[in-house]
Amino acid sequence: MDSSEEELLLVLVMRRRRRRRMKTKRSLHTHPLLRDRLEKGLYYTLYDDLRQSGKKFFQYFRMSKTSFDELLENGKEAITGKDTILRKDCPCNKQKPPYWYLGAGSSMMGLHFQYRIGVSTISYIIRHVCSAIWRKMKSICFPDLSKDLWLASAEGFHKKANFPHCVGAVDGKHIRIVKPTSSGSLYYNYKNYFSILLLAVCDSTYKFLFIDVGAYGKSSDSTVFRNTVLNNKLQDGTLDLPAPKQLSLSFERPMPFMTCHLAWSVEEILRTVSEKISQTTSSALKAKCHGSCKKSKC
């Protein structure tokens, strides 16, 4: 079969599928369950009561009312629709499911029954709200990596974990996904499920300084780190890390600033920011990194 015959066959198959869709008629324009949204939807029956109690509100949405209102304002424009002849747009009801989905990990099907909104509509809302929040708050939540920022982070680790010259704690998180089509074992991780990797650098208060999202689930944290923008800046000297400094009066040799990870070799990171270090110093830093990270649960 040549290419022209394959193209013709493909066109015929697509035409047949289109005709089948046209023949399929919906029995209902709106399901009766969704019609009662204004009377029985979770927003109209529970939300006002939750606002009266800060503790219960936090337990439900996993965030304070102040943080919730801020996120609500930043994601509002992404889901503001228009009134139609069949129904009126209700942005208030559509704004709440994304934050419950992100905070508690509820399924879209669960939100469909709770808020009485279509599953496809909820999927659309979550995607667009997340995109709007990222666009508006990225520059606020992820400031430029500067020398002052690194020094402030290092001071926090020194005070809270007794770990000097540590500018950040690095770790990865597997985010479970449905296996992408024709992906083979690229997304299959050592925990025996399909995932993408979120790699993050946090300061001593558990706030993100840098993230990298989307690596294959089969990759290790160190492999992902080597391919990040952060590591590229570290290699070419544009990360703006503070210069090596003396730790104390009793330890005269200047020591470089570094990131910490339980499973990584300390020499691998130090090698890029300092000259070759002795085996004794390397072993001591390994022990310190392991102990401090466990203490701060990073």
Rank of each mutant, 00 (worst) to 15 (best):
M1V: 15
M1D: 06
S3A: 07
S4E: 14
E5V: 11
L8N: 09
V11M: 12
M14T: 06
M14G: 00
M14H: 06
R15V: 14
R16N: 11
R21L: 09
R21N: 07
S27T: 08
S27H: 12
H29W: 15
T30K: 15
D36W: 08
G41I: 02
Y43E: 06
L46M: 13
D49C: 10
L50W: 07
Q52A: 14
Q52V: 05
S53N: 15
G54Y: 10
F57Q: 04
Q59R: 13
K65I: 09
K65L: 09
E73Q: 13
A78Y: 12
A78S: 14
I79N: 04
G81D: 03
G81H: 06
R87A: 12
K88E: 11
D89L: 12
C92Q: 15
N93D: 14
K94S: 09
P98H: 04
W100V: 09
A104T: 01
S106G: 07
M108Y: 04
R116D: 04
G118T: 01
V119Q: 08
S120K: 14
I140C: 14
D144G: 11
L145M: 06
A154M: 13
F157A: 13
H158A: 08
H158L: 14
K159D: 04
A161W: 13
N162I: 05
A169I: 07
K173V: 04
H174W: 06
H174G: 05
I175C: 07
V178W: 00
P180V: 06
P180K: 11
P180L: 10
T181S: 10
S182G: 03
S185D: 07
L186M: 12
F194Q: 08
L197W: 01
L197A: 02
C202I: 15
K207H: 14
L209N: 07
F210A: 14
V213N: 03
G214S: 04
A215K: 00
G217E: 04
K218P: 00
S220T: 13
S220V: 08
R226C: 08
R226K: 13
R226M: 02
T228C: 11
T228L: 02
L234S: 00
D236T: 02
D240C: 12
K245H: 06
K245E: 15
Q246W: 15
P256A: 10
P256T: 11
C260L: 13
A263H: 10
W264H: 14
W264V: 00
E267R: 04
V273F: 02
E275D: 08
S278T: 12
Q279E: 11
L285Q: 03
L285I: 10
L285D: 00
G291V: 06
